[in-house]
Write a protein that binds this DNA or RNA. Structure first.
Lengths: 138, 138
DNA sequence: TCAAAACACTTGCAAATTGCAAGTGAAAAT
DNA sequence: ATTTTCACTTGCAATTTGCAAGTGTTTTGA
């Protein structure tokens, strides 16, 4: 059981104690926007995270109740990671990261997705939260 | 001039290359919600960041165009750091961090601030963006 | 049925980053 | 003139990262 130290009682600081890590948020991105759920799928991302870092971050996220680990339905040797409701609640944060990155950094993004997030943010947040929930049940 | 390496062309990943750091976001928090603008003020936060880390992160934020450094109006030995519009645009992200932290972690927050952020998020985002802009002119 | 492949990690280690304490140098106050 | 304030810098031990290789179960396929 991974234990994180809380630096203060500030909500921002405490949120950052777990979410203030590049790899953690890329895992959440892959779950929300790419529907990924296994160790092998997370390793295939463009950012090439190291295997030990991935294992460590999955353990942190599980111990923090942001995702659940379970044996896959089809294979006993496979695990699936699913978002809890606490994990689903990071969707608005991830969407703000998309919007900031797309506006201020040189990046590549599907223009339709960007338009959807910009023009109907509240609806898009609900849509991706629900998608994340549906995947968690699958 | 600090150079950051971009891990991919994904907007989330690229945003995280600069914002995916606990100390960077605490500096932005202090500017937006506490109106801080000097090296000495940042050092006084509850999280006690080390002096060398603070100097490093301020240099990163300046080189990324998120804040500007200028000699203070009153004293030549003092610098003031102010948010650029790129920095002001992190306000929605910071507000999502507040909401997630307050909802899912044991933290302490003024109930009126929380209610304001929860019940009228869009208006609150605009309000704090404008406050941040006004401080940048002061 | 038995060897090979897939899958999810673990381990070892060099290199980079962090956190702490102390030091530096210029301007302000006394 | 001297002390204090302010904004850093430096040195160094300890932690964390990133890379490559290895381990131990399933599962697939001949």
């Amino acid at each position: 059981m991974k234990v994180l130290k809380q630096r203060s009682t500030c909500p921002i600081s405490t949120a950052l104690d777990v979410l203030g890590d590049k790899w953690v948020l890329l895992i959440l991105r892959d779950m929300v926007f790419a529907g990924k759920s296994t160790y092998g799928q997370f390793l295939q991302s463009a950012e090439k995270m190291a295997t030990n870092i991935l294992a460590d971050r999955l353990a942190v996220l599980e111990s923090q109740g942001i995702l659940n680990k379970a044996v896959a339905a089809d294979k006993k040797s496979k695990f699936t990671y699913r978002l809890t409701e606490k994990g689903v609640d990071t969707v608005p944060l991830i969407i703000e990261l998309v919007l900031w990155g797309a506006k201020h950094c040189p990046t590549i993004i599907d223009p339709r997705l960007l338009a959807e997030l910009q023009d109907e943010k509240a609806a898009a947040v609900e849509k991706y939260k629900q998608l994340a929930r549906d995947m968690a049940r699958a």
